[in-house]
Design a protein around this nucleic acid. Structure first.
Lengths: 355, 355
DNA sequence: GATCCATTTTGAACCGGTCCAAATCTAGAG
DNA sequence: CTCTAGATTTGGACCGGTTCAAAATGGATC
């Protein structure tokens, strides 16, 4: 009565709230809330009524308010450490697909800050403001994709799974990553089948991942009665190029080079080109990561595929395990990699190009 | 009095709140709030006291509560459409650096959902739950990096800048992107200087970006009295390969091919290799994007560099402009690209490899 | 010592939800 | 028709901040 205020007086501008719906439907806000999160508890009639008015009003629960009230957000956080690395994008995708399949959803974020001090690990340092935000958001769980430099209990209280990170001795966090030992075995066996014996390794610098792979290479060689030839190097094209150039200048150069990763391996290919060494006839080259560009015809690099899709799936799986039983001890999942054989070891033999 | 409740009874577990600090410092919560967001208004003594007790208690304002109360979050949202495209990572980085330099910060997110229906634009469709969240968060502004398929007023009420997206006629949103017309001029001029006249274009399928580049190529050719040769194709390696194979089988094949982007151009290189056509002697190839892998020696592709760093910077700049004056009409910034000349057009001539 | 004004501080309402104890409404049993 | 148990609905406190009008404080002035 009175000055006949329209029903929609509040609707101006911002989104309708739960109170608007309650008023329009003639029920209490509590009931509207219930109708959304536990529909069975609400009587048939009102439920329909509430849902319909919500629909017509265009109501959508406010995520912020909900998270504040419940002390927790409805999603799983996915922190992608390094946006420049395509394999992390693959893992993140797989994580999201798996979460979706189980009715959860993932929020992808990156907080990486360029780190000029350490050219060998330019990414991995993290913006604390973004972390603070993520903490306040309190996602159900967190999946960290890639290696974070400073991680000391950053996400206390949030169940965390590390996907494709470096092996860490500390923490009781679950992790999922490629089994480098098996990777090295695959590579060395493949090369030996092709008749190679002087097999060198390029890499080892720049963190635990590098070290792990170097050790795996050494073991694989020694267990087969071969002598390791290691040339320390970093992760990038230039590193592989320099190392390979040196190796090829040796008195009796290696007939095969195994690299720490694909990008460096591509540098090795260039070094061979420049030195007039034919690949694969005079030199076989193998990388690790199986990044998309290794499949390009111009490169066609034999590579250890870490099975990123599987890593993503298992990471999501690990999150569900933790959620189901928070007291379960942390697990370390080691994925068996696959060897993708291309022209850099066997001419013209294109195998398992698409998986 | 009574059962002597300890001061820290609330501190157990979760982070201390503003009330904990207020109690510990013997002031009201309002004052603590003030001390944090407008320190000048608080008396010297209490300010110091409050800040110190906050420090010792380890208090940090809760981002969620703040955003809810103020109806807005303290950061600029950066929505990276496609994590798999390295140029978007470059843009996002540049945006963040620029925001940082001006005291703001960016929250990177990706909401892309794989889109099996349309293999030519596999990314660009967006997870509505993530969008809803972003809306609730109400960032100061939003920078969308890359082309979003469905965008109809998704972010109403939030100032939005499109970086490196397709040109859009609708909307009053600001945008920053490469000037494709200038890009085409650079390419055609370069090729003509090298004596090429039969210059073909590969691409044009898969959205407005593709169409824009095709039109730019046509204009550049016609304005120079040359006849356009267009072979419609998509964005990927296979597309370039197929198109180039066809072109090279023509009675009088082109002596140069301009591609829609680098990835497709690499396919063209492969096609030339397989057809026994020498690059650059018998065929020159040019791409667009200057993705990192085009600089690899094995590929060494001449490419139009869209100046991603600059695009990122200007996008951030555009955000500040809007924030400073919300009524300013939307602007369209066109960036002048640079041509990076490599072996695919001029043998052995390595120019501007690192910027 | 009283008065006035500027500065500092406080209390309470609010943002948009959740949640729980209490109130109300069924309907079947006695 | 009353009683009671179970289902449904509601009011109000709460999450952790912000905000603003009003109260308290502190000088300076008369």
């Amino acid at each position: 009565m009175g000055s006949a205020v329209g029903d929609e007086s509040k609707t101006s501008g911002s989104r309708p709230t739960i109170r608007d719906v309650a008023a329009a439907a003639g029920v209490s806000k509590s009931l509207v809330s219930l109708a959304f999160k536990d529909p069975q508890r609400v009587g048939e009639k009102r439920r329909e009524l509430i849902l319909k008015t919500a629909q017509t009003l265009g109501y959508q629960p406010n995520f912020l308010a909900r998270s504040l009230a419940t002390e927790g957000s409805p999603f799983v956080g996915i922190l992608v450490v390094n946006l420049h690395n395509p394999i992390f994008a693959e893992i993140a995708d797989a994580v999201r697909v798996e979460l979706d399949a189980r009715g959860e959803y993932g929020l992808i974020t990156s907080a990486t800050v360029a780190n000029d001090q350490d050219p060998e690990q330019p990414y991995g340092r993290i913006d604390s403001r973004v972390i603070a935000m993520l903490q306040d958001l309190r996602p159900k769980a967190l999946i960290v994709v890639g290696t974070v430099i400073e991680h000391e209990g950053l996400f206390e209280g949030i169940p965390t799974v590390y996907a494709s990170a470096e092996p860490r001795s500390d923490s009781g966090y679950s992790s999922v990553r490629m089994d480098d030992t098996q990777g090295a075995d695959l590579v060395i066996d493949h090369l030996r089948e092709l008749g190679h014996e002087r097999i060198a390794f390029v890499g080892g610098l720049g963190g635990a991942v590098a070290k792990t792979r170097e050790v795996a290479y050494r073991k694989a060689m020694e267990s087969r009665g071969l002598t390791p030839i290691v040339r320390e190097a970093g992760f990038f094209e230039g590193d592989g190029y320099a190392a390979a150039t040196e190796l090829l200048a040796m008195a009796s150069p290696p007939t095969a080079i195994v690299s720490i990763n694909d990008v460096s391996a591509i540098g090795i290919l260039s070094a061979a080109d420049d030195a007039g060494v034919a690949v694969p006839d005079e030199l076989a080259v193998v990388g690790v990561d199986n990044i998309p560009l290794s499949a390009l015809k111009r490169i066609s690099l034999t590579s250890v595929d870490p099975q990123n899709k599987l890593i993503g799936q298992l990471s999501a799986q690990a999150v569900f395990d933790i959620l189901a039983d928070p007291d379960e001890p942390a697990k370390e999942h080691l994925i068996t990699p696959k060897l993708v054989i291309r022209d850099s070891t066997v001419r013209g033999d294109i195998v398992a190009d698409k998986s």
